[in-house]
């Protein structure tokens, strides 16, 4: 464990707490893409298949349970909760995310570290996470104004993977054999997808203006 990875995990946790706060405090999920939440639930379920077989540390197991539990709880809330589901922007959240699932799975069948079930699902989860934010970014562009908590949620979600890139650079120089290029490339693509959001987020912060993504 290094400071970059710890910062990344905590930033990821903060993004989830901000999202839970927004939904719980406002009893609303307006501006949140259910499709992105479903993709993240799938990412965690596919990546943590080894939850009960490979014990890494208490921290690792607890965080996996928190990520799986929170993502499923948010999807449940947005689909089933009587009050919350009314504020879901169904008509704006129209990204065909099944293509992202299919594409990532096909790519994982072709490009993986080892042809085992666990490795293929791991690669699938890495590729899917790289594109999972797309429905959310599309929804933000369509819904025009972005409320603060939603903006902060997306910001922390993007920042966490940037910390992971620093973690991979750190591990590359400190551990002889750390060549996990699947994570490298996907992590770079994932962070790059946030680039324009980060730009508009920073500008809105600098000008102390409401965050507006150009349609």
């Amino acid at each position: 464990m290094n400071i970059f990875r710890l910062a990344g995990d905590l930033t990821h946790l903060i993004s989830i707490l901000v999202l839970l706060l927004k939904i719980y405090a406002t009893k609303s999920c307006s501006g949140i893409s259910l499709k992105t939440q479903e993709l993240y639930a799938l990412v965690f379920l596919a990546r943590y298949l080894d939850l009960f077989t490979d014990f890494v540390s208490v921290y690792n197991t607890v965080m996996k349970l928190v990520f799986i539990g929170s993502s499923l709880a948010i999807v449940w809330c947005m689909r089933m909760h009587r009050i919350v589901k009314r504020s879901y922007n169904r008509e704006l959240d129209t990204f065909r995310h099944y293509f992202l699932v299919a594409g990532s799975f096909v790519l994982a069948l072709v490009v993986h570290e080892k042809f085992t079930l666990q490795e293929i699902f791991w690669a699938f989860s890495i590729y899917l996470e790289a594109v999972a934010i797309l429905p959310q970014l599309v929804l933000l562009q369509r819904s025009g104004n972005v409320d603060n908590l939603t903006g902060q949620y997306v910001f922390f979600l993007g920042a966490y993977r940037a910390f992971y890139i620093l973690n991979w650079i750190y591990r590359y120089f400190t551990e002889q054999r750390f060549g996990r290029w699947i994570s490298w490339i996907s992590g770079l693509v994932q962070t790059a997808l946030y680039a324009d959001f980060f730009y508009y987020y920073f500008m809105s912060w600098k000008n102390n203006a409401k965050l507006q993504l150009p349609a």
Partner: peptide
């Protein structure tokens, strides 16, 4: 060797 497939990251 197995440890290079040992996913210790979240």
């Amino acid at each position: 060797n197995d440890d290079d497939h040992y996913h210790d990251e979240l």
